[in-house]
């Protein structure tokens, strides 16, 4: 078509290209406009309220800009203790999840897919069950005259009931149980993607099973483990229900303190400031992790 009339065809093609391009752009925008309703929900529920809290956290008693809400945090020892508790609980829960989750994920990843699917129900059932129900279950199990104490005394492990709940122990047990699926699921997915030929090759080259595991399999499973651990750690930082119920007022994490401030003092500035610190800690952890481990592919299956 292009050879008929040199001058006319060129301008015609230009017109054509421009029209196509315009049409393409218009279509791109019309497709993209489908996300608008979802974005409105996120803006209304997340962005606007969070910006408001951010603003409130910098509001002083006199109504002007001030850092006093943040300054308070460095002054009082109670705040320091809350940050330490939050970090401690999150760290210990994550470690417990790795210790329990790695072997189980490994076991599941070794099974034929059909059987893995069946045993996976053991991970998915608690994952789908309300966290309130599971917290309640642990309250029942761990209480003074609860099943665990009765059983241990019958077997002779200890003589008088041990205080297992309304303290740190109970909180950690409950949180590890609730968080375990969050570690196992990404770890299992990562393990499934490990090329089986790698282990064949290791065995062929003379590695014994233990050596092959530690020098080939484990390093390959690390990204999945890191991704899972980070999800667990970050979710723990903002945990509220389990420490509130199983901690019995003795385990105060940041979220519990935020509610306490609002319930007792109705101090929006102080509560918001604490919330901003929590949010910054959470996003910072995720940001660094995403930078260092490039793990969002493992998280969302997207690159």
């Amino acid at each position: 078509m292009a050879h008929a009339d040199a001058d006319g065809s060129r301008s015609g093609r230009h017109l054509h290209e421009a029209a196509l391009k315009r049409q393409h752009t218009r279509e791109q925008w019309s497709i993209l406009s489908l996300v608008v309703p979802a974005m409105i929900v996120i803006v209304l529920i997340i962005l606007i309220p969070l910006s408001w809290l951010f603003y409130l956290s910098f509001l002083g008693d006199n109504g002007g800009f001030s850092l006093e809400n943040y300054h308070k945090m460095t002054q009082y020892k109670s705040y320091y203790r809350i940050f330490v508790t939050t970090f401690q609980v999150s760290m210990l829960t994550t470690l417990a999840c790795i210790a329990l989750g790695y072997p189980l994920a490994f076991f599941l990843a070794q099974l034929p897919p059909r059987w893995a699917g069946v045993f996976m129900l053991a991970v998915l059932l608690p994952f789908w069950t309300s966290l309130l129900v599971r917290t309640y279950a642990w309250l029942v199990l761990l209480q003074k005259r609860g099943i665990l104490n009765e059983f241990a005394m019958q077997v002779g492990l200890w003589e008088t009931p041990i205080k297992l709940v309304h303290n740190m122990t109970g909180t950690l047990i409950g949180m590890a149980h609730i968080m375990l699926p969050f570690l196992i699921l990404p770890l299992y997915n990562a393990m499934r993607k490990i090329d089986r030929d790698m282990m064949h090759a290791a065995a062929n080259l003379g590695a014994n099973p233990v050596n092959a595991f530690w020098r080939v399999y484990f390093p390959l499973s690390l990204p999945g483990m890191v991704a899972g651990s980070l999800i667990v750690f970050v979710l723990c930082l903002g945990f509220y229900v389990t420490p509130a119920v199983l901690g019995g007022g003795r385990v105060i994490m940041v979220s519990n303190q935020i509610t306490a401030i609002l319930e007792n003092q109705f101090d929006w500035g102080a509560a918001s400031a604490l919330g901003v610190v929590l949010l910054v800690a959470t996003t910072f952890t995720l940001y660094v992790a995403a930078r260092v481990f490039k793990f969002d592919a493992a998280l969302f299956g997207r690159d």
Binding site: I45, P49, L50, L53, L237, G238, Y240, G275
Partner: peptide
Amino acid sequence: PVILIAIG
């Protein structure tokens, strides 16, 4: 963290 969404 959900607590922030809640109070916000």
